[in-house]
Simulated scan of single mutants.
Amino acid sequence: MSTFTIFLALIVVVAFLLIVVIMVQNPKGGGLSSSFGGGGTQQLGGVKKTTDFLDKSTWTLATLLLALILLSNVAINRGGENLDSKALDVDATTTQSLPTIPSDTANDAAEPIETPQE
């Protein structure tokens, strides 16, 4: 298993967790944070602590996802190929000729298409 594959698996897991955490939140205060600790009870730390936890976990997962994406670029196997630009190489300049049409197909294309008359 390559390093890039490990990074890819971690990115998928973190992205899934980030989606779950975002979907649990409700901007109007009626989501999971209001069901825990509602009515004055202190279940799981209350509404304020649940909202703080969801907010902090969102930022943490988003930062982790960005870091994993940037680090996965380093882990890509480039196969040892030279990544220098060919446009700047003076010796690598080549000229391309335009494709030529064979003479027998050129005459066929020039003939009008006959349509049946009614």
Score class of each variant (00 low, 15 high):
Ser2Asn: 09
Ser2Arg: 07
Thr3Val: 03
Thr5Ala: 09
Thr5Tyr: 10
Thr5Leu: 10
Ile6Thr: 07
Ile6Gly: 10
Phe7Asp: 05
Leu8Cys: 04
Ile11Met: 01
Val12Gln: 14
Val12Asn: 12
Val12Ala: 13
Val13Ser: 12
Ala15Lys: 02
Ala15Ile: 00
Val20His: 01
Val21Asp: 02
Ile22Phe: 13
Ile22Met: 09
Asn26Thr: 13
Pro27Val: 05
Gly30Asn: 10
Gly31Cys: 08
Gly31Phe: 11
Ser35Gln: 08
Gly38Asn: 07
Gly38Trp: 09
Gly39Glu: 11
Gly40Pro: 02
Gly46Glu: 04
Gly46Met: 02
Gly46Ser: 02
Lys48Ala: 09
Lys48Pro: 03
Lys49Gly: 02
Thr51Ser: 10
Phe53Ala: 11
Phe53Asn: 02
Phe53Leu: 14
Leu54Val: 07
Lys56Arg: 08
Lys56Val: 08
Leu70Arg: 00
Asn73Thr: 09
Val74His: 05
Val74Ala: 15
Ile76His: 11
Asn77Thr: 09
Asn77Gln: 12
Asn77Ser: 15
Gly79Pro: 07
Gly80Tyr: 12
Asn82Lys: 11
Ser85Gly: 02
Asp89Arg: 03
Thr93Asp: 11
Thr94His: 15
Thr94Gly: 13
Thr95Pro: 00
Ser97Leu: 09
Leu98Gly: 13
Pro99Leu: 02
Ile101Pro: 02
Thr105Asn: 12
Asn107Met: 08
Ala109Cys: 06
Ala109Leu: 11
Glu111Pro: 00
Pro112Asn: 06
Pro116Ile: 09
Pro116Lys: 13
